[in-house]
Amino acid sequence: MKLLYIVPNINNEGGVARILSLKTNYFITQCGYEVHILTQNNGNTPLFYSFHEDVLFHDMQLKGAAPLFAFQYYKALNQYISLIKPNCILVCDNGLKAFLLPFLVRRKIPLLLEIHSSIHVQEHPSSHAVFNSLKQNLQYHFKKYAAQKYTKVVFLSNESALEWNVRKKAIIPNPLWFAVNSAAPLSSRKVIAVARNTYEKGLDRLLPIWKEVVALYPSWKLELYCGNYQDLEVLARELGIQDSVVFLDPTKTIQEVYLQAATYVMTSRYECFPMVLLEAMAAGVPCVAYDCPCGPRAIINHCVDGLLVEDGNQDEFIKQLQLLMRNEMLRLEMGKKAQDTSNAYQIEHIMPEWQKLIKSLK
């Protein structure tokens, strides 16, 4: 069995790259598959995560304005497909070109689209409300139409599938990439967040919340593992909280960070299936998250193993975060249940579903 993954890039610390390294390793070692990964514009060097040595990497150079870019994509895509001759193509790209792909591939090969973001995702704020609304609406309808052209669309949760209303679908959550044999003691005075510093991840929404929280809990610290945080440092200084916020680069030993935390926070504007929540929960760390479209509610059971807050309700987020900060027994109770919830996402439970799906397409 030959698999070809098509993804914009995997040379970053993002969740897609991490999960792809995990899944391709499983397919090679446990299933005996041949795995190829096709990126663009040097998107596979240097790698942040470790991929199996037998993974075969390819890269297509795409430059220029939209018409030239699209032609280059069409040409390179079919050249690599002809060269590799995969039994199945898996697309991990939720940009517009991923939805063009079913119309561009010349060979009749099963095509799987993995959905890793909300259909409503907006990568940048817009100052033109009317234009932005029209653009988003056109993209929304095109994505829904084009997704139907795939052999199957794989969603990470039922909540994600409901956004798309695709007929040919499968629901397979992402697996946890590490097993934690101990739980965080939750006795530190440390709140953490792990995310790329992008509009989508909403870290700019977290700092005003922390300003109000730390006024009552001045001995606590907020640690942000995000990288590229210069603009957030400026915002922290403007808010007068620079002494209580620590900005850090991404780390490959993030599991050790979770074990030192008391609470995890997420203020994303959009998500799909945020692995950082599961990772924190696997370490026994309770989470507070905005109930944004559409990932946190697929993972957190509100008031059981974590807390969900109405999206954008800053006052309620402050209230819920303070509740966990002042109540260590509640943290311990929720943390234990969070760890129990995370057990269902161990790799031995998830990857056989992928193997079954791929075999069904032959």
Score class of each variant (00 low, 15 high):
Asn9Pro: 01
Ser127Gln: 14
Glu328Thr: 06
Lys221Val: 02
Ile81Glu: 08
Tyr33Gln: 03
Ser117Lys: 01
Glu212Gln: 14
Val288Trp: 10
Ala179Met: 10
Gly95Arg: 10
Val166Gly: 06
His128Gly: 01
Ser342Asp: 03
Ile6Phe: 14
Ile192Lys: 00
Asn301Pro: 05
His349Gly: 03
Leu361Cys: 10
Gln61Thr: 15
Ile299Glu: 09
Arg237Ser: 09
Ser82Pro: 01
Trp177Asn: 14
Leu83His: 07
Lys2Asn: 07
Leu20Ala: 06
Pro218Asn: 08
Gln230Asp: 11
Lys201Asn: 13
Leu112Tyr: 09
Ser342Tyr: 00
Ser50Arg: 10
Leu186Val: 15
Ser133Met: 10
Thr39Gln: 01
Ser133Val: 03
Leu62Thr: 01
Leu83Trp: 00
Arg18Leu: 12
Pro173Ala: 02
Lys63Cys: 02
Asn197Val: 06
Pro102Asn: 04
Arg326Cys: 09
Phe131Gln: 13
Gln322His: 04
Leu216Gln: 13
Asn181Glu: 09
Cys226Val: 04
His141Thr: 14
Lys135Asp: 05
Gly295Glu: 04
Gln355Asp: 14
Asn25Tyr: 03
Leu111Met: 13
Asp305Cys: 03
Leu104Trp: 05
Cys303Ile: 06
Ile89Leu: 09
Gln30Glu: 15
Ala65Thr: 11
Met60Gly: 01
Ile209Met: 04
Tyr49Phe: 15
Leu100Pro: 08
Ala262Lys: 12
Ser268Ile: 06
Val191His: 00
Asn9Trp: 14
Ala179Lys: 15
Ala98Asp: 05
Gln61His: 14
Ser126Gln: 08
Thr253Met: 12
Asn78Tyr: 03
Leu330Tyr: 02
Met281Gln: 12
Leu100Tyr: 13
Tyr74Arg: 11
Ala298Asp: 04
Ser118Pro: 07
Tyr140Ser: 13
Cys31Phe: 02
Val16Phe: 01
Asp311Cys: 15
Ser133Ile: 00
Phe273Ser: 09
Gln346Leu: 10
Ala215Val: 07
Arg106Phe: 07
Leu321His: 02
Arg196Gln: 10
Asp305Gln: 04
Pro67Thr: 11
Trp220Arg: 11
Ser342Leu: 04
Gly295His: 00
Ile241Asn: 12
Cys272Arg: 01
Lys168Leu: 09
Arg326Ile: 04
Leu216Gly: 08
Leu207Ala: 09
Gln260His: 11
Ala170His: 00
